[in-house]
Computed example of a mutant assay.
Amino acid sequence: MEFRKKIEELLGSFLEEREDLFLVDLKFSAADDITVILDGDQGVTLQDCLDASRAIEFNMDREEHDFSLQVMSAGLSEPLTTPRQYRKNIGRELDLLMTDTTKIEGELAKVDDDKITLILRYRKPKEVGKGKVDVVEEKEIPYTEIKKALVTIKF
């Protein structure tokens, strides 16, 4: 069996047993350095990463094919890529870079399979007179229009 296909199957079997975890990214370098990035509905623990690593390593023969394996959780610096990741972050502030290069910041309110809904809060000039008014609006954004989505970290 082809090396990459075997890794994908082993990882797939592990994730079938652990329905609370899901794959964010699987990368193979030319030197067969494998990077697995996982996320979970309740987060990812060190033990989850160890279990995933063992599920792959214990079923591969390094004498037959030499490789390095790194299993990690999706960090806050990693962009959101799947509806499941967005769902996990409902209620958090997101910074979006759109495909047309505009930037949008708002609170993630709803998620479905085709789009997200953000609550946008901003100030705009009054229509009559001087000064500004606070505005709160919901904006639906299809995934196809999102180039990059990051969770905003506030202290």
Rank of each mutant, 00 (worst) to 15 (best):
D51G: 07
E145F: 14
E105R: 15
F14S: 13
K132S: 07
S73N: 03
Y143K: 08
E138L: 15
K147H: 08
D25P: 09
K147W: 02
N59D: 05
L108D: 00
G129V: 02
V151C: 00
L118R: 10
T45M: 07
K130D: 05
V128C: 08
A52G: 04
M60Q: 01
D114H: 14
D33P: 04
D95W: 00
E16S: 14
H65P: 09
E64M: 12
T35S: 13
K6W: 06
V128A: 11
I7W: 06
F155C: 00
S29G: 00
G40Y: 02
L23I: 12
E17F: 09
G91C: 06
Q85F: 09
G106A: 04
F67A: 12
I146R: 05
L69V: 09
E8D: 10
A109W: 15
D39H: 05
S53D: 09
S13P: 13
P79K: 08
E63L: 07
L50K: 13
G43W: 07
K126M: 01
D66E: 11
Y143D: 06
D95T: 01
T99C: 10
I90W: 05
G12N: 12
R123P: 04
I37Y: 07
E137K: 13
R4I: 12
Y86F: 15
F14T: 12
P125H: 05
